[in-house]
């Protein structure tokens, strides 16, 4: 239950949606339990239901936002940034943590999920490969590109959340040191 909630929270970024989506995933798993061929593989099967729900929810949310902006005849919608990630969801908040949380919300779905599984649920590479239905090599490569992208966002392009605090400087210095 907690795993489902926290994974959903990492993917959609706010408590109400995470609760709703994780419960909907359990409901669908219950309804389609007969489709699970091997009960030992419950978690990977359940994870697929949960992630599909979360990503489809995010797409609908973006679409709604785009439509409302369209109606207002405003500037073209910008997908991705912030994506309604609630900063209140971060424990013991500080500027650096808020920036990392916002940066995660800017990652694309494929990269966001590996970061969530690795950093928030501490899954091993083998466990991640099982839930993502891919091999270890793919997990490694996705993590590499996800972290690379996260680093780029944190190092700060003009319109993104640059690292204004010590951690950012640390990262930047790391990049210039050698």
């Amino acid at each position: 239950m907690k795993d489902a909630y926290f994974i959903a929270l990492g993917l959609v970024g706010n408590r109400e949606d995470a609760l709703e989506l994780s419960q909907e995933a359990f409901y669908r798993a219950y309804k389609h339990f007969d489709q699970l061929n091997d009960q030992e593989r419950f978690f990977p099967w359940f994870y697929q239901i949960l992630r599909n729900l979360c990503f489809s929810h995010l797409r609908k949310r973006r679409l709604r936002r785009a439509e409302s902006l369209d109606e207002l005849d405003s500037e073209p919608p910008q997908f991705g940034p912030a994506d309604a990630f609630d900063p209140e969801m971060v424990a013991e908040r500080n500027e650096s943590k808020d920036r990392v949380w916002r940066a995660i919300s800017r990652l694309d779905e494929k990269h966001r999920e590996v970061i969530v599984l690795r950093h928030f649920r501490q899954l091993s590479y083998d466990e991640m490969a099982r839930v993502l239905f891919c091999n270890r090599g793919t997990v490694t490569s996705r993590l590499y590109y996800a972290r690379q992208r996260l680093k780029e966002i944190l190092e700060g392009s003009p319109e993104t959340d640059g690292f204004a605090d010590g951690s950012a400087d640390e990262l930047r210095k790391g990049g210039q040191r050698v």
Partner: peptide
């Protein structure tokens, strides 16, 4: 360094 600052982020229980 990135891993360290990302690991620092924990979610509210």
């Amino acid at each position: 360094k990135l891993k360290r600052i990302t690991d620092d982020v924990t979610l509210v229980e």
